[in-house]
Simulated scan of single mutants.
Amino acid sequence: MGTGVVNIENQQFLLGPNQGILFRPRIPHEYHPLDQKNWKTAFLSFDGTLCEELAQYLGLKDFLYIDRISPEIMAFIPEIFHDFISSNTVSLPDQSVEIYKFIMLLHQNNVFKDLHSNATHITLPIVNYISDHYSEKVSNEQLSKITSYSVTYQNRVFKKAFDITPLEYLTNYRMKKAKEFLLTHPEWEINTIGNKVGFHNISHFISQFKKTYHTTPTKFRRFI
């Protein structure tokens, strides 16, 4: 509640309700209430072997100002914040899973915020379709039917907005879901996870995972 001022790297931000800043450790900053009025804040800090990779995933340089958050994040934060500060603190693996979910929500929030308004009618249906059908076979032709534009045009617009093609976005999304499943479902076999993210050839799945993350799914699971 309330509004405050945050100074970071010679920049000043007003931080009001449903806004926030994510920044790396040891980045000098200061903050105070606006006009000395009441300002209630909360913070979450975390570290771990995947932090650098997650920071790159978010496009985080030194800090990331979030001026508007999605309803999903608004619902998620109070729930997980209560769990973290309660006397029944969740286990460290569970905390890692929740933080990973939070990062995924932040990424999705930024993706939708950064879409060019004149391209949303093309990019948004593609993003939504992929998030709902990533486990299935997806082709440019299918996406073209969703957008009602030619494959060439829709791909050009999508790449301008995301710097990758729709099918490259699909592959990246599948890999991120695979990592999520490796974290959240330790009981699932690697083959099961591959199938759930749209790879029905286990060798192809392992090869793509290694190409993306420079390790195999099995080694990634051991690492965490």
Rank of each mutant, 00 (worst) to 15 (best):
L106P: 00
F84S: 04
T49S: 12
E98Y: 12
T171R: 12
E136D: 15
V97H: 06
N7C: 10
E187Y: 11
L124K: 15
T152H: 09
D83G: 03
H133W: 01
Y129K: 04
F223I: 07
L143K: 00
Y149M: 10
R68L: 08
T192C: 06
E180F: 12
K145S: 11
N110Y: 05
A55I: 02
S135M: 08
F199S: 00
I77W: 12
A42V: 11
F162H: 08
Q36D: 15
V151C: 05
F181S: 09
I146D: 07
P125S: 09
E98R: 15
T147S: 04
N10P: 04
P166I: 03
N7T: 10
D83C: 06
G48I: 01
P25A: 08
D94P: 02
A42T: 10
R222C: 05
S144Y: 06
H82M: 08
L58W: 00
L60P: 02
F102I: 08
E98N: 11
W39H: 10
V5A: 06
F63D: 01
P25S: 12
E168T: 14
I103P: 00
F13A: 00
P71F: 04
I103D: 00
T165L: 12
G16Y: 07
W188R: 12
Q95H: 02
V138S: 00
N10M: 08
F84W: 05
F199V: 01
T120G: 12
T152G: 08
D94S: 13
L182S: 07
P186F: 04
F76D: 13
V97M: 10
Y100V: 01
S148R: 13
F162W: 03
T192V: 09
F84R: 04
R24N: 07
R221G: 04
R156T: 14
E136K: 14
V5E: 11
G48Y: 06
N191R: 13
I21F: 07
K196Y: 13
Q108L: 13
M1F: 06
F205Y: 11
I224V: 13
I224L: 15
I224P: 00
F13C: 02
F199C: 00
N10C: 06
I130K: 00
S150T: 14
